[in-house]
Design a protein around this nucleic acid. Structure first.
Lengths: 332, 332
DNA sequence: TACCACAATGTAAACGTTTACATTCCAACA
DNA sequence: TGTTGGAATGTAAACGTTTACATTGTGGTA
C-alpha cells in the first residue's frame, strides 16, 4: 500500500534509478529532475522502506544497547545519551534490558549475528569468559561500557573510577584530617567497584595512612549491605572516623545504621559515597559524594561505535574515561 | 561473509526452499532432512539475516518506543516492562527519547512510515493536534501511554489517576479529618495531572468539603514550582491544613518551603504526593503518596501492541488502566 | 563535419529470504 | 497394472532498494 520508488518513477516518468538518486541527493541528477521527483514523492507521501534499504546496503542503522538485568537510576540517562547521539547520525537505538528469558550471550548473538544491529554497546559490570568468547566470535563492531581493568583488547568507555576515588580519599585525609578511614566495597565481580577499592588503598598508602584490614568490609552496592557493613564497623572497639562507601546506596545504609545507634553524622562519624544519585542531596545531612557525568558514557559510547561502524570496524580500540567531580556536601 | 541458506543448501545437497522450511520448522519437511539441515547450519554458525527476513515478510519484529524529551526516574522501568514483554514474543524494542534534533512528529513518521518498526508505543503527556494527525496518517498499529481524557479513538494505557487521587483525597478527609485541603496542580497540558485535579475536586465535593479557589494553585511537576506554590499557601492568612501535591517532586518542594519556615510536618501541616518516587520513603518525614505499578504500563502496552501487530491491526481499541495503591507513611 | 568526453539517465542485477506453484515419487486402491 | 493423491522437495518469483554498467544526448574541439 505504501508508495515505492517504482510508483514515483512511473508518475515522474523517469527510471527508478533516477528516483533513487534524486532521493539520496546524488549530484549527478539535474536539479530540475530532482525537484520533480521530490515533488511527486511528497505528493505520494513517500517514505523509503528502511528495511529494504538496510537490507540491500547490507548495513543497519540500528545500534543495539544491551543493559544488565537490574534496574538502575542511571540507565535512562545512558539510554538518552546513546539515543541522542545516535539520532544525530541517523541511527536508531535498540535496547535489550531483560535477560530473564534469554541469556546475555544469546542476546549478543541474535543482535550481532542477525545483521539487525549495525553495532552494539554493552553495558556490563563484569565481563565473564563466555561473554568474551561470544563477543570474539562476532564481526560487528561493539563497545563496552564498564569499569576497565584488564579489558585490554576491547574498546571501553569507563567512569574514571580511579581518579575519582583517589581524589575523594585524598580529600578525606588532607582536607578533613581523617586518619582512620574505612571502606565498604562493591560486589566482588564488579569492575568499577574493584577499581574504586584499589584507588582508595593506594591513596591511603601514598598519604601514609594505615589501612586496617578490618576496615575494608565487603558490600554489594545494596542499601542493606551498606547498613550491615556499617554496623560491623561501628560496633568494633576500634571505630573508624569516616566511612567511604563504594556507592551512594550503601552510604544511605550507613546513615541508617549510624543514626539508629544515636550517633550523629558528621560529628561522630563521617560518611561519603560515590555516584551522586538523586537522593544524595536530600539525605540528612546531604551526602558528600562523587558525581559522574553519566550521560557522557552514553554519548561517548555511541560516538565511538558509530565511527567504528562507518569505518568498517577498522578503527583501533580506544579507551575513554569520562570525568567526574567531587561534590562536597555536609556528611563529613 | 556470514553464512546464508544458499551455502547450507549446497552443503546439505537440498534446495534453499527446503533449508528455509527446515529452519522455520515447517512440518512438511521430513525429520531426517531437517536434522541434516540443522546440523549443517550450526556447523556453519548460521544466523538468519533478520533484515532480509523482515524485508521479505513485510513485517518487522521491532517495536518503537517513543519517549518524551524529559528525563524521568520511571522511564527505565517502562522500558524494561516493554522490553521484557517484547522479547518474550520475539520482538525487539527500539527507543527514541530525544527530540532535540527532530520533532516528535518526524520521529513518528520515520518510525511508522519506514517499515522499520512493526508497531509503536508512544509515551506522551499530552496529545497535540499535529501529533494526532500524524498518527492518523499512519497504518502501523500503535498504543499510547498517557493519562486518558478524551482520547476516545485510540488504544491507551493509563495510570488510574482518577481513582488514585480520589482515594487519596478521601483518605485525607475521612481518615485524617482534614477539612482545609489545598491542591498543587501539574502542568496545564498534562493529561495525568488534569485527571488528578478533577478527582481531587470531585472527592472534596462528594464529601462535602469546600474547595477554596486560592487553595488550588498551579505547579508544573518541578520541585521549584512545588516550593513556590507551597509558599503562597502557607503565607496566606487562611492556611490549609494539608497539601495534596500532584506529584512527589512538588511535595518535596513543599517540604522545603514548610521546613524553611520552621513549621513541622505533619504537626503543623500535612503533605501528600503522587508517584512514590525512590526518594519518597527517605524524605523526612517519609512521604505518604500513591504508588503506581509503573512497569505494568510497559507490559500492558507491549502486550496490547503485539496483539495488534499480529492481528493486522484489526483489534478494537482498548483502554487499560493500571492499578495503584495508597502508601501511607508519616507526612500527614 | 566528425569525434570525443562527459553529463544525465536508463537497464538490470543483486541482496537473503519466503512462498506459490511445479515437480517428483511412492503408496494405496480400483 | 494403471491411476490417483498426497507427501517431500525443488524452482523461481517476489519484496524495495542501490548501484555497476550501458545508453543516450549534448557541447566542445580538431
Amino acid at each position: 500500500m505504501a508508495a515505492t520508488i517504482k510508483e514515483i518513477a512511473k508518475i515522474a516518468k523517469v527510471s527508478i534509478a533516477t528516483v533513487s538518486r534524486a532521493l539520496s541527493n546524488d549530484p549527478k541528477v539535474i536539479e530540475e529532475t530532482k525537484q520533480l521527483v521530490l515533488k511527486v514523492a511528497s505528493d505520494l507521501n513517500y517514505n523509503p522502506n528502511l528495511l529494504a534499504r538496510n537490507f540491500v546496503k547490507r548495513k543497519s542503522n540500528l545500534i543495539g544497547l544491551i543493559l544488565p538485568d537490574i534496574a538502575d537510576e542511571f540507565f535512562s540517562e545512558i539510554i538518552r545519551g546513546v539515543d541522542d547521539t545516535a539520532l544525530r547520525s541517523n541511527y536508531f537505538t535498540m535496547v535489550i534490558s531483560s535477560h530473564k528469558n534469554r541469556s546475555l550471550v544469546e542476546s549478543i548473538q541474535t543482535l550481532m549475528g542477525g545483521g539487525l544491529a549495525g553495532g552494539v554497546i554493552i553495558l556490563i559490570p563484569y565481563l565473564s569468559e563466555d561473554i568474551k568468547s561470544a563477543l570474539n566470535n562476532e564481526r560487528i563492531p561493539f563497545v563496552i561500557i564498564s569499569g576497565d581493568n584488564g579489558l585490554g583488547s576491547y574498546s571501553t568507555i569507563s567512569i574514571d573510577n580511579y581518579n575519582a576515588a583517589y581524589e575523594m580519599t585524598q580529600y578525606l585525609i588532607t582536607q578533613k584530617n581523617y586518619t582512620k578511614i574505612a571502606f565498604i566495597t562493591g560486589p566482588a565481580d564488579n569492575n568499577d567497584a574493584a577499581i574504586r577499592q584499589l584507588a582508595f588503598k593506594e591513596a591511603c598508602r601514598n598519604n601514609g595512612i594505615r589501612i586496617k584490614k578490618s576496615w575494608i568490609v565487603e558490600g554489594n552496592f545494596s542499601k542493606e549491605s551498606g547498613e550491615e557493613a556499617c554496623r560491623k564497623l561501628i560496633d568494633s572497639k576500634d571505630k573508624p572516623e569516616a566511612i567511604f562507601a563504594a556507592n551512594d546506596m550503601m552510604a544511605l545504609g550507613c546513615y541508617e545504621a549510624i543514626q539508629s545507634k544515636g550517633l550523629k553524622i558528621p560529628k561522630d562519624i563521617g560518611v561519603v559515597g560515590f555516584d551522586d544519585i538523586l537522593l544524595a542531596r536530600f539525605m540528612n545531612p546531604p551526602l558528600t559524594t562523587v558525581k559522574v557525568h553519566i550521560n557522557e558514557l552514553g554519548i561517548m559510547a555511541a560516538e565511538l561505535l558509530i565511527s567504528k561502524i562507518e569505518n568498517n570496524n577498522s578503527s583501533a580500540n580506544r579507551k575513554i574515561k569520562v570525568s567526574s567531580e567531587l561534590v562536597i556536601r555536609k556528611s563529613c
